[in-house]
Amino acid sequence: MDISDIPVEFVDQIGSIKKISFPQQGHTSLVIKIETRDHQFIIKKTEHDLFNEWLSEEHQALQYLSTTGLPVPKVYAFHIQDKSRWLLMDYIDGISLRHFLGSKPNHKDREKVISHYGLCLKQIHETQRPVGLSKNDQSWIDTMFMKASHNLANYNVDGTEELLVRLKNDRPKPIENTLIHGDFHTNNVLVNNNKVIGIIDWPRAAFGDPRFDIALAIRPKQDVFDQKGDKELFFESYSRLIISDEEYRYFQDGLYKFF
């Protein structure tokens, strides 16, 4: 990709481009870093129906979240071109929390960042629902079931029809909804100088069940929530509620498999 491939309206806003690079890529979009003389941008491009839908939803969510004080990237423009979608936003100069933990930081720094990770999720869940991110006529979980059924019928997902039926029959007891990220895990949290400085990838932002965020936040990976005391430190900082093993399995090993 070169400058000529970037939508003209983006180039007009960006100005004179000095450098184009490709940072660590996700699974759903092409991520392009743009550098000018005095600013850095990120462009995300998708070319798949489901991922196009997610990018459109992320654009809308970031607009709503811009007034909340949460550390989200500023969004500048959204472009539709044939079967592709493009989103232009600020670059946040940090590394993913997963990358940070995988770099084997010293014990003190590791504890500090995990604690800040818990505080970050607490901040999201205590943020007033932004104007525009309104309640649906149906409950959040019923909306998720509807989307799960659609994804199961139309896309390659890890969930099955049998799992979806079981989730509908065994839904957890409702709790008070909050603003949620919807995909809150260590790849979507950016760190610099041992502090969380950014939260990215917001297509599933909603007024929903905070246990969904918590379950994704604490799922163990290599070097991530695989040491004694990690979860306890997270919950000590989060301090709103602690989910049970059953709730963890329901959201992380169940509902999330359709997204």
Results as ranks from 00 to 15, higher is better:
V165C: 08
I20Y: 00
I17M: 05
R204Y: 14
M146V: 11
V196R: 04
F225M: 03
V196L: 08
S139N: 04
V191C: 06
Y155H: 15
S4A: 06
E57Y: 12
L190I: 02
K18Q: 13
G182N: 11
I34M: 08
T28Q: 13
K231Q: 14
N188V: 07
P203R: 02
H27E: 14
Q138M: 14
E9I: 11
G254K: 04
I218Y: 08
A206M: 10
Q128F: 09
F184Y: 15
A205D: 04
S21N: 05
Q227W: 09
A215Q: 03
E176H: 12
E53A: 04
S239H: 07
D109P: 00
Y91L: 01
D5Y: 08
D158M: 14
L55N: 02
Y248E: 05
Y155G: 04
L164T: 09
K195S: 14
K83R: 14
L55D: 06
L119D: 11
L50T: 03
E111F: 10
P130I: 08
P23M: 00
N106G: 09
E247V: 09
S149I: 03
E236H: 09
L167A: 11
I141N: 05
Q24C: 00
Q81Y: 12
Y76N: 03
D12A: 11
Y117F: 12
L55C: 02
L152D: 02
F207H: 11
I175P: 02
R110I: 03
S96N: 05
V8N: 06
K221N: 04
I124K: 01
M1H: 05
D183L: 10
T160Q: 11
V196W: 11
T127R: 09
N154Q: 13
Q40F: 02
D38Q: 09
A206I: 10
E126V: 08
P203M: 07
I43A: 00
H79E: 10
R110Y: 09
K74G: 01
E161H: 11
P105N: 05
N188H: 14
I43K: 00
V189W: 03
D183N: 14
F235L: 07
A153C: 02
N194T: 01
K228A: 15
L30Y: 07
I114L: 14
I197K: 00
L121Q: 07
D213Y: 06
S103T: 14
L167G: 09
G208K: 06
E176N: 15
D2E: 14
S244D: 05
S21K: 01
H39K: 15
D158S: 14
V8Q: 09
D226M: 08
